[in-house]
Design a protein around this nucleic acid. Structure first.
Lengths: 76, 76
DNA sequence: ATATTAAGTAATGTATATGTTACACTGTGT
DNA sequence: ACACAGTGTAACATATACATTACTTAATAT
């Protein structure tokens, strides 16, 4: 589950702990989400968005496997 | 947890059962998500997006309580 | 050298998302 | 009147998100 949380957090100049505090979870949860091994709840995704002043698609959108090919075709 | 799933599903002319089949969950799960009593996982949100050809912000974005006021102020 | 901060990760417990089965209600068609 | 499709919802079981605690490593500062 790839995402842009780590990039956005660093751009916002926050530590994992600071982001965790602002989103109401523990640092460990943030770490696992950034590493991509977790499948976070929508509510947590939204809280991360609020803390980083982003929207869902900025941080969490991933293209479906099927439409990836169309994208490649578009780029040609 | 308000969302636009029901609207988008009806616009796509799908039943809850059809959407459930396409997203790999049961009809009950779709029903509860549409009703807003569930806090679905990101993976399920993405699968619903794929099935309805939408993006996360279209179906699942909800403004934070704090920024709601700013929005209202903007509209004045 | 030592202390401190940021981050990765493992073990264990709890809360909850989701599945399964089943029943009820509403509307529509016959 | 009956059948059926679509939906809401409840009870119970299972998987997993998330918390808690704790250990480790790397980097930086004193």
């Amino acid at each position: 589950m790839m995402n842009q949380v780590k990039m956005a957090r660093i751009q916002a100049d926050l530590t994992q702990q600071q982001l965790a505090d602002r989103t109401g979870v523990t640092r460990q949860t943030i770490s696992l989400i950034e590493k991509g091994t977790y499948n976070p709840s929508l509510k947590l995704c939204l809280n991360i968005c609020y803390a980083l002043n982003r929207k869902l698609d900025d941080l969490f959108w991933v293209q479906s496997e099927e439409t990836k090919h169309e994208k490649i075709a578009d780029e040609r």
